[in-house]
Lab assay of single mutants.
Amino acid sequence: HERALMVNRLQKLTRMLRVHPDPKWKQEQQELIKRLK
């Protein structure tokens, strides 16, 4: 369940980064990718 939330968050971040590349979001995205591996 928590994994699904993280995947959701990651997808949302990816969409937001396409619109507005924010370093903070980029960092969070990298963190999520690490944790999901």
Rank of each mutant, 00 (worst) to 15 (best):
E2G: 05
E2M: 11
E2R: 06
R3Y: 14
R3I: 15
R3A: 04
A4M: 14
A4Q: 14
A4K: 14
A4N: 12
A4I: 14
L5I: 13
L5G: 12
M6A: 06
M6P: 03
M6F: 01
M6I: 15
V7G: 04
V7T: 03
V7P: 04
N8F: 08
N8Q: 15
N8I: 14
N8K: 15
R9V: 05
R9D: 04
R9L: 12
R9H: 04
R9T: 03
L10P: 00
L10T: 01
L10G: 00
L10K: 00
L10W: 02
Q11S: 10
Q11A: 14
L13C: 02
L13N: 00
L13K: 01
T14L: 08
T14Q: 06
T14K: 10
R15I: 10
M16Q: 04
M16S: 03
M16V: 01
L17H: 02
L17C: 02
L17T: 01
L17P: 00
R18N: 07
R18Q: 12
R18K: 10
R18Y: 04
V19L: 13
V19H: 11
H20D: 13
H20Y: 14
D22G: 03
D22R: 08
D22T: 07
D22E: 05
P23I: 04
P23T: 04
P23K: 05
K24V: 10
K24F: 06
K24L: 09
K24R: 11
K24N: 07
K24Q: 11
K24T: 11
W25A: 06
W25Q: 05
K26C: 08
K26Q: 08
K26P: 02
K26I: 13
Q27N: 10
Q27G: 04
Q27M: 11
E28V: 04
E28Q: 03
Q29L: 15
Q30S: 08
Q30I: 10
Q30W: 09
E31W: 10
E31A: 08
L32R: 01
L32I: 09
I33S: 03
I33T: 03
K34A: 12
K34W: 05
R35L: 14
